[in-house]
């Protein structure tokens, strides 16, 4: 066929006119704002937010949170800390117990165990932890996948964000550090002011292209090296899948 490109071009012949990007920018900023609000609120409630196509899902088992969870107010502090140096870190020890389908780990905090899991999540908790529901992660470590189509946002939550959302005074500010997990780019997100409600997360892609998230309580008091060591020991098995609401 003679010059199919020209023929196809004729089907979309348009005037060349200057493009005003403001509407697209406003729309995109709105989406980013909503996503950060959902992530900030969920992180404070010990949940993990999994960004999925078309929006953010708050993954707590199979429930889909329709609204940002209620957040307990925390007193604002003026000192930004990444971990509480007055408390000892819980040691990271090699895990030799039974693994579960979906995900495997090489290390757990001392005195903790794999509570259980499914194709969508692995839950690690202190031995004898009262809440045995593997789909509820307050006070636990959760390992799971983000959708491959997701566009994760690794920007920190700032005071300006909280003011824009009307959430000033909430302990939701975070810092994000770019790190490396098994040679792959990763992001380690910490609360600016850790307390008993805050969590730390590491997001990374493994060698098979899975977007993995590990999240655990700030009270583990791990430094970056310990979080990376734990993340590097995660192995995503064939039957693992990203959770959906």
């Amino acid at each position: 066929m003679d010059n199919l490109k020209d023929i196809l071009d004729s089907a979309v012949l348009m005037e060349d006119a200057p493009v005003d990007p403001s509407a697209d920018l406003a729309r995109a900023r709105g989406h980013l704002r909503r996503r950060r609000m959902t992530r900030a609120g969920a992180g404070a409630a010990g949940l993990v937010v999994i960004a999925a196509v078309g929006g953010a899902l708050v993954a707590s088992g199979t429930e889909k949170a329709a609204t940002v969870p209620a957040i307990a107010s925390a007193p604002a502090t003026t000192t930004a800390r990444t971990k509480d140096d007055s408390l000892p870190a819980i040691a990271l020890v090699a895990y030799t117990g039974e693994q579960v389908p979906g995900y495997q780990v090489g290390f757990v905090p001392k005195g903790w165990e794999i509570q259980g899991g499914s194709s969508t999540v692995l839950a690690i908790a202190p031995k004898g932890f009262k809440n045995q529901d593997v789909h509820q992660w307050v006070g636990k470590i959760a390992v799971l996948l983000e959708s491959k189509d997701a566009s994760p946002d690794h920007e920190p939550v700032t005071q300006a964000d909280l003011e824009a959302w009307g959430m000033e005074g909430e302990n939701l500010e975070t810092t994000v550090a770019e790190v490396t997990v098994n040679g792959n780019q990763a992001w380690l997100t910490r609360p600016k002011t850790p307390d008993k409600s805050t969590t730390v997360s590491v997001a990374f892609a493994d060698d098979k292209g899975h977007n993995v998230v590990v999240q655990g309580p700030s009270s583990l008091n791990w430094d970056d090296a310990q979080w990376i060591k734990f993340a590097q020991s995660v192995k995503v098995l064939k039957n693992a899948e990203a959770g959906r609401g």
Binding site: D24, L25, R27, A28, R29, H31, R35, S151, H154
Partner: peptide, 9 residues
């Protein structure tokens, strides 16, 4: 375009 913006970094 929205997805591009969200994934920009």
């Amino acid at each position: 375009l929205t997805k591009v913006y969200l994934a920009w970094p």
